[in-house]
Every structure is written in C-alpha cells, then in structure tokens.
Simulated assay, not measured.
Amino acid sequence: MDTIRTGDRDKAMAHAARLADEGRTAMIQPYLDMVEAEGETSLIYFGGRFSHAVRRNPMLAGGVDPLDPESSRAVELRTPEPDRFALAERVLGELPETLYARVDPVRLADGAPVLIEAELTEPYLFLRHAPGAAANLARALAEAVRAATKGQV
C-alpha cells in the first residue's frame, strides 16, 4: 500500500513526508535488482515450525501492475534451498516467539542469501497455495491458546 519505486531522493523524501503527515510510518529500503530476476521467496512459519514456502512476483518490477492481482501476485509453491532455509531458521532464532512469521531471503550477486524482510504481523500467509498450510496455522493457534490458558478454568 502506497509503495513507490524511485531513484529520486527528493521524490522518496516527499512521499515519506506525506505518509508521516498522515500519521503513518514510512519504510524506506534499497531496491535489489535480483528481486526482479528471481522473484521473492517467502518462508512461512507457524508456531516456530516451517510450514511452506512460495515464490512470488516482485511487486514493483517493470511491467507489473501492483494493483492487478494477476500480474503482481503470481505465486508458486517452492521448496527453499538449504542455505535460505538455514538463514530463515537463524533469523527466527533471534526473534521473540510468534504465532506466525514470514521470512523473505534473497540472493546477492555473489550468491549469498540475505534477509530482505521478516514479517511478524503479515496478513497474507499464502495458505491456499500449500496443502496443509491452514491446518498448520490452526494447530499453532490451538497450541498458543492452550499455553495461554494453562491452569485456568
């Protein structure tokens, strides 16, 4: 929402200022070209356990309309490469326990995986793309409720 891609510092600062004037928080990050080449890989976790991974089209790539779900939200179920999986596990090991998390690594030009996002309040978890994903979330939610109500009547 309200995402732009620009190399113009003044335009970026004006956009961030507009969001701030509206009482919103802006996130500014460098754009990595390799996201356009390989898309974005998201590893989804429920209750600290890996559930599934997807590859999605880059939202701000040339020729992709971010408002058109058919062009910007194409999603494919993926098996993450071992080094991306290891990175996601390390990232989650440094964060507080959450009901769900989405970890998005990308490869740098030298091939090394790096974190571009760790979403702990992600509203879209790609449940319909992975068989069993909804059940994984339900199981994690039930475990969290049991833990929170343990010892209560």
Results as ranks from 00 to 15, higher is better:
residue 142 A to S: 08
residue 21 D to W: 00
residue 21 D to N: 03
residue 17 A to T: 00
residue 9 R to I: 13
residue 131 P to T: 02
residue 38 E to I: 01
residue 76 E to M: 07
residue 60 L to N: 11
residue 152 Q to K: 13
residue 141 L to Y: 12
residue 42 S to V: 00
residue 69 P to S: 05
residue 99 L to V: 03
residue 96 P to E: 14
residue 42 S to M: 04
residue 75 V to K: 10
residue 15 H to C: 13
residue 139 R to H: 07
residue 62 G to T: 04
residue 29 Q to G: 15
residue 122 E to N: 14
residue 95 L to P: 09
residue 3 T to R: 13
residue 39 G to K: 01
residue 128 R to Q: 11
residue 72 S to H: 08
residue 145 V to H: 04
residue 86 A to C: 15
residue 127 L to E: 07
residue 27 M to C: 09
residue 23 G to Y: 05
residue 100 Y to F: 07
residue 125 L to Y: 08
residue 135 A to I: 07
residue 25 T to N: 01
residue 124 Y to P: 11
residue 75 V to G: 03
residue 83 D to Y: 14
residue 144 A to H: 12
residue 34 M to L: 13
residue 38 E to T: 03
residue 26 A to G: 06
residue 100 Y to K: 01
residue 64 V to I: 10
residue 147 A to W: 06
residue 29 Q to T: 10
residue 37 A to R: 09
residue 51 S to W: 14
residue 15 H to T: 12
residue 24 R to W: 06
residue 56 R to Q: 11
residue 64 V to K: 02
residue 148 A to G: 09
residue 97 E to N: 14
residue 11 K to M: 04
residue 18 R to E: 04
residue 74 A to K: 01
residue 139 R to K: 08
residue 103 V to S: 01
residue 123 P to A: 06
residue 114 V to C: 05
residue 111 G to C: 05
residue 133 A to S: 04
residue 73 R to A: 00
residue 58 P to D: 10
residue 69 P to Y: 10
residue 118 A to N: 07
residue 2 D to L: 08
residue 39 G to D: 02
residue 133 A to C: 13
residue 86 A to L: 10
residue 93 G to W: 06
residue 141 L to I: 12
residue 12 A to F: 05
residue 141 L to C: 14
residue 87 L to I: 06
residue 31 Y to N: 11
residue 116 I to N: 02
residue 20 A to M: 02
residue 96 P to W: 00
residue 39 G to C: 06
residue 145 V to P: 15
residue 104 D to Q: 04
